[in-house]
Nucleic acid binder design. Structure first.
Length: 958
RNA sequence: GCGCGAGUGGCGGAAUUGGCAGACGCGCAGGAUUCAGGUUCCUGUGCCCGCAAGGGCGUGGGGGUUCAAGUCCCCCCUCGCGCACCA
């Protein structure tokens, strides 16, 4: 006898689940159930009449089309948004939910290189595979709205947005971006003066071009960039790890001055910080963004260099009030002034006798660097440049540096102060030079101690404060006219003095730098830019798209040699690079030169370009005349601060993608193409699915699937291995394929399990053994509504008993609240309780009352939509339940007549009594005292106090 | 070092404003069905003492506020994440 002979024919098992799931997925497609109508424009067809409902835009961070397929960790967020979207649709919203693909970029290109196929081929294949895998989950997406960023019909609009950015400048008076035409107009009218003081039209066309180009929000700049020969491309700061390697591939990254495209994101720094207050985002992400932008306020101060009439060192400080305590200066090793300032020979000691500090000879000796200053500097630079990452970590923050033999003059008191180079000052922040104030700065204190430099406190520390810098507030001391002022007043006073005496100015600096926007890769958006002998020229919109040329040799030239130079693959497409055009337009834009040969830009845009605006294209994906119809955008935006109602994705995009997308959105907002100042109103970070991973004695990961457990020990091929938990994936060899789960349980079980494991924003370990729990729930749900022997529904038209109805309506109220707050795990627990109760009802009555059956099915529908649709049909409905109203609780049935209340004596629960709802304190106390057990305990005791919380608790304090 | 988050049964996890700690699921134990195993169903299950009634202990550790603390305050420990010489 085999199992299947004994199992009832219509039991809900994997086989039946698979049948049901395929049938409903097909039906949803055939009937276009999840085609979301726009209120106007191209996608306005609205057979269900839902376009005028309130709108809700629910968005996932779209995936890149990976070649290895999905594992069960990937769709966690996708399932979460699908449950939420289905719930909101049933609450009467017109819900937009779709899924596109982030198809350009390194992962796709590297996959193509590995497989030896063209990325356009592999990308298309991978997208098809992923669409198939995602479809099997039953996600209710509008299939028309999922573009791939590598489609020509998509990236022509990425190029279009680039042109809009290129053709804009930031008007800091109006605090917004404006078209460059308006800038030209200001120059022409004289409202704005040209730097040369001449009328704009008297300038030569090259001068006009250079002037306007210097204002643009997209510009070519030669500056130190992150050059990664191992990838053959330059990278944005955000793509480089703190230890100087590429985030992708972990290759070393070198700073090299190279001509590259930059986007002027720093112009938006203050708005990017300020508008974090108008969105509903996790604090952690908002802090990460604030940190990354790194705004500090303070002042620039200029220090004259002794013996160089023409030279000044400019520093940035957040504590200008401490300038009287600046006893030395430090330049970053790469600072351009180092060579000019370094003295020819070491000075004598005599000028330092007043300071009673260590003699100059000892400074020279700290790092054993003898010989003339220039040699010491040279050797120090070698020492710093040769530090490996490992050394940097093990050495930690030990200070090092050398004296330049030169002195600056402290502008507030005329004191000569020695100048050092040291690697604790970074070229990339502020001006790359500092005034060192050891009395008020820990790092400077440490350096001063090491070199025996004088320490002057300029803020009075608290009593008994000794041996370290004091960073707190207090009255200024040793600071001339500032003495007695607190820090804030002293700052204001010294800035005023510095500005009046031309020694400095108030200033704000940022850690954020402009965004390096070009890559030397093939698989990306070409720039809509050509060059003549003077520089870049934007192509007119009519020439879009600039199609990526077909190339067989698309591979980047990578190298181990740090001195190798970047070589964009597109530069090898010579037929494409050279192009004859007649560009119509103004001379100041480089246009209007007649028909001639130009050279195309051969860099491509970074991966982030396509993902900066994809959510906008979801709104109007087939529009060929506009990125998005403004009326359509406004309808979905619906006067919120952020367009997207809910955006779900991983924390790893907390800075990069989310910052870049906000920046582009703000430019588009300034130029009037979108109606909200922010793209994403509510952001939610989903956790990860973790899984056991195993390492062998060599520390290598082994296939988790093949590990055996014996007596709590783990073995792989007979060898002992150790277990740890980590993010599920290829690298830890602990991935679980969704197909295996479909095969054994079905997609509804997988969905339900992933939602039941824990709160959506928390990472949780995958445990195969737990899955049966949710599968049993679906099985019981099925059995409660359908006879397993016949497959026929057993639903009665009789009214449910009072207890069942009360439970039903309590469940409805709780599930609604949980769904709203994305607490799917507790919503599911509530449904379990109701279903368990129903099991008893069915056992007694042989059927389920319809009112309970229908409500339960509708509540299950967002979570396990296939089985819900099937049950909905079997209990007598012909239409999909996707647009049915989510059940509403009856307030009358939420009320209880009486509640059980714990009675405490001395804070310990000793009994429970039943109290009518709404009873007063006295009644509570009387009923409690009537309880035999309580009466016993209170007999002979003195009740010092009685606490009554009506309906909650009674406590006799003895 | 700084910032953010977390620490609750054997496991995943529940617990509006401080008000019955451990919902729900897994696992485990006992029972029904079964020749048997598996499936399905029922009952029990924080730990300790006790036949039981009952009692004691219990939310990383220590202290405090309170009639009452997982929740609030102070100190400490561990783990995860982010930033990291940012002037």
């Amino acid at each position: 006898m085999t199992r299947s002979d004994e199992t009832p024919e219509h039991r809900y098992n994997a086989q039946l689940a698979n049948e049901i799931e395929q049938r409903w997925q097909n039906r949803w497609d055939d009937e276009r159930v999840f085609w979301t109508p726009n209120r106007m424009g191209l996608l306005a067809e609205d057979p269900r009449g839902v376009a005028e409902r309130p709108s809700m835009f629910i968005l996932d961070m779209f995936p890149y089309p990976s070649g290895v397929g999905l594992h069960v960790g990937h769709p966690l967020g996708f399932i979460g948004t699908d449950v939420y979207a289905r719930f909101q649709r049933m609450q009467g919203f017109n819900v937009l939910h779709a899924m596109g693909f982030d198809a350009f970029g390194l992962p796709a290109e590297q996959f193509a290189v590995q497989t030896g196929q063209h990325p356009s081929v592999t990308t298309e294949q991978n997208i098809a595979t992923m669409r198939r895998q995602l479809r099997a989950l039953g996600l209710a997406h509008d299939p028309r709205r999922g573009p791939s960023t590598a489609d020509e019909s998509y990236y022509r609009w990425t190029q279009w947005i680039f042109l809009k950015i290129y053709n804009s400048w930031y008007d800091s008076d109006a605090d917004r971006a404006r078209p460059v035409e308006e800038l030209v107009e200001e120059f022409r009218s004289g409202a704005r003066l040209t730097p040369q003081g001449l009328p704009f039209d008297d300038l030569g066309s090259t001068e006009q071009r250079e002037l306007i180009d210097s204002y643009r929000l997209a510009f070519v700049d030669e500056s130190p960039v992150n050059w990664c020969p191992g990838l053959g491309t330059v990278l944005a700061n955000e793509e480089v790890t703190p230890d100087g390697r590429s985030e992708r591939g972990n290759f070393p990254v070198y700073k090299r001055p190279l001509k590259q495209w930059m986007l002027g994101i720093t112009a938006y720094a203050d708005r990017l910080i300020a508008d974090l207050d108008i969105v509903d985002w996790p604090d952690s992400i908002r802090n990460m963004q604030r940190n990354w932008i790194g705004r500090s306020t303070g002042a620039y101060i200029r220090f004259p260099v002794e013996g160089h009439e023409d030279l000044e060192i400019e520093v940035f400080t957040t504590r200008p009030d401490t300038v009287f305590g600046a006893t030395y200066m430090v330049l970053a090793p790469e600072h351009p002034l180092v060579n000019e300032i370094t003295a020819n020979e070491w000075p004598g000691d005599e000028i330092f006798v007043d300071w009673e500090s260590s003699p100059i000879d000892s400074w020279k000796g700290v790092f054993g660097m003898v010989g003339p200053p220039a040699e010491a500097v040279h050797r120090y630079r070698e020492f710093v440049g040769g530090k490996s990452d490992l050394e940097r970590e093990t050495e930690g923050r030990d200070k090092s540096g050398v004296f330049l033999g030169a002195f600056a003059i402290n502008p507030v008191n005329g004191e000569p102060i020695p100048i050092f180079v040291a690697d604790y000052v970074l070229m990339g922040y502020g001006t790359g030079a500092i005034m060192a104030v050891p009395g008020q700065d820990e790092r400077d204190w440490e350096f001063a101690e090491m070199f025996g430099l004088p320490i002057v406190r300029t803020v009075q520390p608290p009593d008994a404060w000794e041996g370290e810098a004091y960073l707190g507030d207090g009255p200024a001391i040793n600071s001339g006219f500032l003495d007695g002022m607190n820090v804030a007043d002293a700052k204001a006073a010294i800035i005023e003095w510095l500005e009046a005496n031309d020694h400095g100015t108030a200033a704000v600096t940022y850690k954020l730098h402009d965004w390096l926007f070009s890559r030397q890769r093939y698989w990306g958006e070409p720039f809509p830019i050509v060059y003549d002998e003077h520089g870049p020229i934007a192509l007119p919109e009519s020439m879009l798209p600039v199609a990526l040329p077909e190339m067989t040799d698309f591979q980047p030239r990578t190298s181990d040699d740090p001195d190798a130079l970047p070589e964009p693959p597109l530069s090898r497409a010579s037929d494409w690079v050279e192009v004859e055009l007649d560009l119509d337009g103004p001379k100041w834009a480089g246009q209007g030169a007649g028909r001639q040969v130009y050279l195309r830009e051969t860099n491509t845009m970074p991966q982030w370009a396509g993902s900066c605006w994809y959510y906008l294209r979801y709104l109007d994906p087939t529009n060929e005349d506009a990125m998005v119809d403004p009326a359509v955008e406004a309808a979905w935006a619906d006067s919120k601060a952020g367009l997207v109602d809910l955006y779900v994705g991983g924390v790893e995009h907390g800075v990069l993608h989310l910052l870049y997308a906000r920046f582009w959105h703000k430019v588009l907002y300034d130029l009037g193409y979108v109606s909200t100042p922010e793209p994403f109103q509510r952001l939610f970070n989903q956790g990860y699915i973790l899984a056991a991973a195993y390492t062998d004695q060599r520390g290598m990961h082994v296939e988790a699937e093949e590990v055996e457990v014996r007596d709590g020990e783990f073995f792989f091929e007979g060898q002992g291995v150790t277990r740890e938990f980590g993010k599920m994936g290829k690298s830890l060899k602990n991935a679980v394929a969704p197909d295996d789960i479909y095969r054994d349980y079905g997609a509804d079980t997988l969905r339900l399990y992933e939602m039941f494991m824990g709160p959506l924003n928390v990472s949780r370990p995958w445990n195969m053994a737990d899955i049966v729990g949710v599968h049993r729930f679906l099985q019981r749900l099925w059995r409660n509504l359908v006879a397993e022997e016949t497959g026929v529904a057993h639903v009665s038209e009789e009214r449910a008993d009072d207890e069942t109805r009360r439970l039903l309506h309590r469940t409805i109220a709780a599930v609604r609240a949980d769904m709203e707050s994305l607490s799917f795990n507790t919503a599911i627990a509530r449904l379990f309780e109701l279903n368990n109760h129903l099991t008893h009802v069915v056992q007694e009555q042989g059927s389920t009352p319809r009112e309970v059956a229908e409500s339960l099915v509708l509540m299950v529908a967002p979570l396990a939509p296939h089985i819900a649709e099937e049950l909905w049909e079997r209990i007598g409905h012909s239409e999909t339940l996707a647009y049915e109203d989510f059940p509403e609780p009856d307030p009358e049935l939420l009320k209880e007549d009486a509640v059980e209340v714990p009675v405490q004596v001395g804070g310990k629960v000793r009994s429970r009594i039943t109290v009518p709802v709404g009873a007063d304190d006295a009644t509570h106390e009387r009923l409690a005292r009537e309880d035999t057990r309580i009466a016993e305990l209170l007999d002979g005791a003195t009740v010092r106090k009685t606490i009554v919380v009506p309906g909650r608790l009674i406590n006799f304090v003895v």
